[in-house]
């Protein structure tokens, strides 16, 4: 049974994840209708509370809420009183007094959604907190792999990039492992946390070994502005060593798919030729993101009997 909030993949059981994915698979059909709307959350208020800019995730949650007929309100940093030094909890309590039925939170500090879930009446969905978790991204990645491969059990999934600072990597490690996939992570030693193997993954500093026989290769976005010089000597060197291109992908399984949470640094973590065509499924990920977030809203928002 999925709890009141959706804060991270770490808290979910395998059955919870399967329920979410199956619900999302049913939601996909609504996106193919001429009228892409069902009345399920009619009269419910869905607040997007984004303290960190995000066009993709916020838009995806907004479309998901609207397809379920919720009233979606976007509360973003630039338009809020955060710039007037209102504290986080005061902001949250102010919003809560407006009686939302679900609050979707993104914050650059890990744990903020968890803290808000303690004080808010409304259920909270984590849309990314610091380097901690990004559960809806991991779930849409799992949905996309299930769509492409039929199931996750027994697959080998390699995640390449800045594992240490990536909430996408962390949520995906939990999620894919719980559903029986073998997860490998790869990157320069500066980007691999020393204790990462305690999460049950294998860590590689050699890309070729990491993607040998993989069914899924997931490239993470490199935050060039922040990390160049700190974690790797130069962007060009990173691209040459860990950037995915067709030549390196030859070591993976023949039918391997390539994923990326977006936005892509073309020519850095992913070569142009891979970003646009099969085996990349990047646009499938985006499309599935809406259905997956509809599933989360359906399962969490506006339930009765509290």
């Amino acid at each position: 049974m999925i709890g009141r909030d959706l804060l991270g993949i770490e808290d979910l059981s395998r059955e919870d994840i399967e329920t979410i994915l199956e619900t999302a698979e049913r939601m996909q059909e609504i996106g193919n209708r001429e009228v892409k709307k069902v009345p399920t959350l009619r009269g419910r208020t869905h607040i997007n509370l984004f303290f960190e800019p995000s066009t993709r995730t916020q838009t995806s949650f907004e479309i998901a809420g609207k397809r379920l007929a919720a009233d979606v309100v976007n509360f973003s940093v630039s338009s809020s009183s955060v710039t007037k030094k209102e504290t986080l909890l005061d902001t949250a309590k102010t919003l809560d007094a407006m009686d939302p039925d679900v609050v979707v939170v993104r914050h650059k500090v890990a744990g903020v959604p968890h803290r808000l879930a303690e004080v808010l009446e409304a259920p909270v969905i984590n849309a990314g907190d610091g380097a901690h978790e990004h559960p809806s991204q991991a779930l849409l990645d799992m949905l996309t792999v299930r769509e492409q491969k039929g199931q996750l059990e027994g697959l080998t999934v390699t995640i390449v990039g800045d594992i240490a600072h990536s909430r996408v990597a962390r949520s995906n490690i939990y999620g894919f492992s719980k559903l029986g996939a073998e997860v490998r992570v790869a990157g320069p030693p500066t980007m691999l946390p020393a204790d990462i193997e305690s999460l049950g993954v294998k860590a590689y500093t050699n890309l070729r070994e990491a993607i040998e026989g993989a069914d899924v290769v997931m490239a993470l976005r490199i935050q060039m502005e922040r990390l160049e010089g700190a974690c790797f000597p130069s962007v060009r060197e990173y691209a040459a060593t860990f950037g995915l291109d067709r030549a390196k992908l030859r070591f993976a399984k023949e039918d391997a798919i390539v994923m990326h949470p977006g936005p892509v640094n073309r020519g850095v973590e992913l070569a142009h030729e891979l970003a646009d065509h099969r085996p990349s499924v990047i646009l499938d990920q985006v499309r599935n993101g809406v259905a997956l977030r509809m599933a989360l809203l359906y399962l969490v928002a506006g339930r009765g009997g509290r």
Partner: peptide, 23 residues
Amino acid sequence: LDTTLYRDDLSTRNARPQLRKTE
């Protein structure tokens, strides 16, 4: 045609019913 998302008792129930296929 699955009718679950059109039910009139969704907001009074705590657990959400499982969705069935629509085709």
